[in-house]
C-alpha cells in the first residue's frame, strides 16, 4: 500500500506525520521523501545512507559537422530550448524538458545527448525502514523528473510512505499520483483552510481517496472541521499545539520519542487508512 502525506500549505506538519507514521510501524516500511526541493525526512528518520546516485536528464548536443541548419529541431521544441540562428545552433540546457523531440526529428542524426544534472538520489536504512530521498541541485528548476526517479525505487512488497512537497501543482501531482490513499495535513487557521481546499480539489482531480490530519488542533478556529464535515471528509487524527512537541521537532526528535503514547495513535492512523483502502 502506498500512503502519501501532502498539504497545500507548507509547514503544517507533513514530515512530522510521515516520519512518525514510518517510525511507529517500523517494520517492512519504505519511506520516500519526494520533497526534493527541501527534503527533511532524514532529520527525523536518521538513516545510514548506503548509496548516492547522481541523477541526470538528457539534453541535446548538436554535431555541427552533420547539421544542415534545417531548423526542424527549433520548430518541434515547445520550450524554446534550441534555436537555429544563421549557421549556429544554440541549446539552452535549463529550458529543456528532455522530450526527445529534437533528436527524434533530426534527419541528419546530428543530435546526440548529454546529461544535465537534476540532483542526487540517496538511499539508506534506519531500524526497519528503507529510506529514499532526492535532493534537487540548487539552480535546477524542474523537480518532477527527480521525483519520478525517487518513485522508481518503490518496493511494492513494503508499506510505502511518501512525504510530498507542499502546494498543488506539478511536483505534488508527481509525488502523490500513484498512491492508494492521501493524508492531507492541515492546521485550523484561515491560511490552513484555504490551502486545504486547494489540496482536496487536487486529490479529487486525481480521483484518490483522502483523509485529513489536523495539526496544532487547538489554535485558530473551527472552520477546518466545519469544512471537513460539510465535504464528508474524515478527520483521521488531531495533534494539539504543544510547546514541548515544537521544541523536540526543532531538535530533530520524533514526536513518538518524547510522547510514546503517540506511537499507538500513529498505528491507529495506519489502521484507519488500511480499512478505508480495503473498502
Amino acid at each position: 500500500m502506498i500512503i502519501s502525506v501532502a498539504s497545500g500549505k507548507g509547514g503544517t506538519g507533513k514530515t512530522t506525520i510521515a516520519a512518525n507514521l514510518a517510525l511507529a510501524l517500523a517494520q517492512n516500511v519504505q519511506f520516500l521523501d519526494c520533497d526534493v526541493e527541501e527534503p527533511n525526512g532524514h532529520i527525523f528518520i536518521k538513516p545510514e545512507i548506503e548509496k548516492t546516485t547522481t541523477i541526470g536528464t538528457p539534453i541535446p548536443v548538436v554535431d555541427e559537422g552533420k547539421c544542415t541548419y534545417c531548423g526542424k529541431c527549433q520548430k518541434i521544441c515547445e520550450y524554446n530550448a534550441i534555436a537555429v540562428i544563421l549557421k549556429n545552433v544554440l541549446v539552452f540546457p535549463e529550458l529543456c524538458h528532455s522530450c526527445a523531440g529534437c533528436w527524434l526529428i533530426c534527419h541528419e542524426n546530428a543530435i546526440s545527448t548529454r546529461d544535465r544534472e537534476l540532483g542526487v538520489l540517496e538511499q539508506g536504512k534506519a531500524n526497519g525502514i528503507d529510506f529514499v530521498h532526492g535532493r534537487l541541485r540548487l539552480g535546477e528548476a524542474m523537480s518532477p523528473p527527480l521525483i519520478r526517479r525517487v518513485q522508481q525505487q518503490l518496493d511494492m512488497s513494503k508499506t510505502i510512505i511518501i512525504d510530498s512537497p507542499p502546494g498543488t501543482s506539478c511536483p505534488v501531482i508527481q509525488a502523490v499520483k500513484h498512491s492508494d490513499f492521501v493524508i492531507l495535513v492541515a492546521e485550523p487557521t484561515p491560511f490552513g483552510l484555504n490551502d486545504l481546499k486547494l489540496a482536496v480539489e487536487m486529490v479529487r482531480t486525481l480521483k484518490l481517496p483522502l483523509g485529513v490530519v489536523i495539526n496544532r488542533s487547538d489554535i485558530g478556529n473551527e472552520n477546518v472541521r466545519n469544512y471537513c464535515q460539510m465535504e464528508g471528509i474524515d478527520i483521521l487524527m488531531e495533534i494539539k499545539n504543544d510547546r514541548k512537541i515544537a521544541e523536540a521537532y526543532s531538535r530533530g526528535i520524533p514526536l513518538i520519542e518524547i510522547e510514546p503514547d503517540y506511537a499507538d495513535r500513529f498505528r491507529e492512523l495506519y489502521a484507519q487508512v488500511e480499512r478505508r483502502v480495503a473498502r
Binding site: E37, L138, M142, S250
Partner: peptide, 24 residues
C-alpha cells in the same frame, strides 16, 4: 516555498530577498 521553478522565477533579477526561517 522550496528552491524550484516558482522560487527561481520569483527571485531572478530582484533587488533583494528576505529569507524567513524558523529555528528548527
Amino acid at each position: 516555498p522550496g528552491v524550484g521553478c516558482p522560487v527561481i522565477s520569483s527571485i531572478t533579477g530582484a533587488s533583494a530577498v528576505i529569507v524567513v526561517t524558523e529555528p528548527t
